[in-house]
Nucleic acid binder design. Structure first.
Lengths: 261, 261
DNA sequence: CTGTTCAAATCGGTCATACCACTTATCCTG
DNA sequence: CAGGATAAGTGGTATGACCGATTTGAACAG
């Protein structure tokens, strides 16, 4: 672990603009940008760090909490505060997007469209760059789908893993993160409707088309196959959530994702 | 404004899982999802709200700060805490992505690629849906670029506005937000290199190609024109940031965006 | 000597209280 | 009636304390 006992923490100038906690956030951010704080590093105890920065503990905690809210830091009671480790695909928190969907009244159509755009992009890139192992994993997941045609929940597991593998094969972690961010929100509703899913066989078939296009290193075919798959999935979803008869109107739409169909 | 004096605030059960502040966050989020809190609404004073929820003020403030960090709430000293208003294109905070770029060592190539994928998507959608007003705005910005060939900074203003107009014309606020999120990070470096930009005329020309494709409602042409434009921009940027001779290696890369060229 | 157990130290989570800084609205003054 | 002084309201910060979860290491049993 990086040695944090050195004097890389500097006192905060009381004569500045903005609030003190904002300055704390800036300090911590700069330390991350400079590389003083690396993924997995543990921050000094709050009491010590507060003294180093020359602020009170509540103010320091406010800064830490802000960075924790965006997924950069993680506090564990009794253990300490850590810089989030960078193993595996980095993930952006989807709750901001979910809340913004509620605030702005995003429609599920917009959400599907955004997902489709992102998935098409990663599918095209995956067709150019997928390694043998990644393609093998995709094939396994497709096989898993065909083997789970009578188990919708298990089918969904393979479905999600397939898409994540494609995203990873794109080699672009930013697009992967954004895609996961959008897909996570839609996933919550899929898991509720998947039990009544009817055409799993067709879905598996379309996933296979995507896989074959990627295997053949044909970006355009991969994009189109993915696009067709998601368009089909969207239509299926829309037919699933057809307004039930006589549902009394209330503030809650019941699907819990803040999306209007 | 929505009446918040009613008893929509419920006490928090001390016997729960997770921390108290997490429960506060959940409470506030649900209130937003349910529509009890609408954009622009002002929350009750912290002292009152803390009593309503049955928690202490610091704990409540922790929850508020978490939601403020992701751009859902905004506190103004002396005024109050508000739900962010939803006018204009909703914007996701780009700092999480910027920090993640530092933590995971994202390359600028990945960033450009992600932006290119998003811009191509919105350009294609814009070609299908752009209104007359939006196309007029695009034309104005293109004209502004040609009029600012000798003023790089002014040119950049028109450049950014053009892309934002295209995004808005896509009709998909989610893709627009994601695109802005990525573009914001790249913008910081562009404003530093733009002074030495040489081929502004060619850039303006390529923007015009994008505009004409959108005007002709030709999604594929729009996508290709946008792709060509951004590929050119990326190559130009890469040639600008060629490592200067004899620059001593230090922790800070100097471009301040946490990206490795 | 090895492995387990348990207790003390560590550290984040919460609470209570007080004071400060800024904003807003009211009221007084000219 | 207009404008500025004033007071109430509200978020920001600080201090101090206690609680509960986690970690760690020493004491103990094998």
């Amino acid at each position: 672990m990086t040695d944090l006992n050195s004097d890389i923490f500097k006192h905060i100038d009381p004569e500045r603009r903005g609030t003190t906690s904002e300055e704390v956030i800036s300090q911590l951010r700069e330390m991350i940008h400079r590389g003083d704080l690396r993924p997995g590093d543990r921050l000094p105890p709050e009491r010590d760090l507060a003294k180093m920065l020359g602020v009170s503990r509540p103010t320091l905690r406010a800064g830490i909490r802000s960075l924790a809210a965006v997924g950069v830091l993680q506090s564990r009671q009794g253990a300490g505060t850590f810089v989030v480790k960078a193993d595996g695909p980095p993930s952006l928190d989807s709750s901001p997007l979910r809340l913004m969907a509620s605030l702005h009244g995003f429609t599920s159509a917009e959400m599907f469209e955004a997902r489709q755009a992102l998935e098409m992009a990663v599918a095209g890139l995956a067709a150019e760059r997928a390694t043998g192992d990644q393609m093998a994993t995709m094939a396994e997941e497709v096989a898993g789908m065909f083997a789970s045609l009578d188990d919708p929940e298990q089918f969904l597991v393979h479905d999600v893993r397939f898409h994540q593998t494609v995203a990873a094969a794109s080699g672009n972690r930013i697009l992967t993160s954004l895609m996961n961010m959008v897909a996570t929100i839609l996933f919550d509703t899929r898991i509720k409707t998947v039990k009544r899913a009817t055409d799993l066989k067709e879905s598996a078939e379309m996933h296979r088309h995507v896989y074959r296009a990627i295997r053949e290193h044909d970006p355009e075919a991969a994009r189109h196959a993915m696009s067709a798959h998601l368009s089909k999935a969207q239509r299926a979803w829309e037919s699933e959530v057809e307004v039930p008869e006589g549902s009394a109107p209330d503030n809650s739409n019941g699907n819990g994702n803040g999306l209007a169909p």
